[in-house]
Nucleic acid binder design. Structure first.
Length: 213
DNA sequence: ATCCCGAGGG
DNA sequence: CCCTCTGGAT
């Protein structure tokens, strides 16, 4: 498919998904930027439903960056254990919190460059924070769902999430990047799942190059 | 057996 | 580029 055709194809996909999921939004529970940052770190290779089961206790025990930075490791690991990768995640949470205390007055920074310097925070997590805590459209969140659907829609052959994002950005208007991320995530979870996509009920069936394969 | 809103290290 | 980290759900 040529560049012009790919662009209109992208616009049509976005239009249809917006009709289907007008309320698509971040499904991680949070009340502050710090809470969203913690929840997003926990979301690696874990369902957001599972993350939402442990964060109430996490937020209650460690109500600030300073409290989280001083957390007892064994206690913290116990609280987040069911989300998987719990040793790495505990280290990331404490290291991230300590960096906030040391370099940002205990607050979550608002730029990509500062966010990805935080331990355990990569480009995907940074895009979640910028888009959903601060309302900024700095990029597209490329998680497992967005990467999978981008491939199935024929937008890219890349698998590296940074390259997938680079391929997606020029296809969609900047002011919709955060919303578009949620549209793909919602569609990925509800219809275009990894193991057995439900093409028979998909609103994009007639324009999807991967339909019924 | 495979996947879930990844990141760090080699 | 690869590998490792981990429990829970299907």
């Amino acid at each position: 498919m040529g560049a012009a055709a790919l662009f209109s194809h992208a616009a049509e996909i976005e239009r249809r998904l917006l009709v289907e999921y007008p309320d698509a939004h971040c499904e991680l529970d949070f009340a502050t930027p710090l809470q969203l940052l913690e929840a997003t770190i926990l979301s690696a290779q874990c369902t957001d439903k599972r993350v939402n089961m442990v964060t109430p206790e996490l937020f209650k025990r460690y109500p600030s960056a300073a409290a989280l930075a001083d957390a007892n490791m064994d206690e913290l690991e116990t609280v987040i254990r069911s989300t998987g990768f719990y040793r790495n995640k505990a280290k990331s949470l404490v290291g991230m919190a300590q960096a906030l205390v040391d370099d940002h007055g205990g607050e979550v920074p608002r730029t990509m460059a500062e966010l990805i310097k935080l331990p355990g925070v990569g480009r995907k997590t940074a895009n979640v924070i910028l888009g959903n805590a601060f309302g900024l459209n700095e990029g597209i969140v490329v998680d497992t769902h967005v990467a999978r659907l981008a491939t199935r829609f024929g937008f890219t052959d890349e698998t590296d999430p940074v390259k997938v994002e680079k391929a997606l950005l020029p296809l969609f208007p900047k002011d919709s990047w955060t919303k578009f991320s949620h549209l793909l995530i919602w569609h990925g979870r509800r219809t275009c799942d990894a193991r057995k996509p439900r093409c028979e009920g998909c609103s994009l069936r007639d324009i999807c190059p991967s339909a019924d394969v």
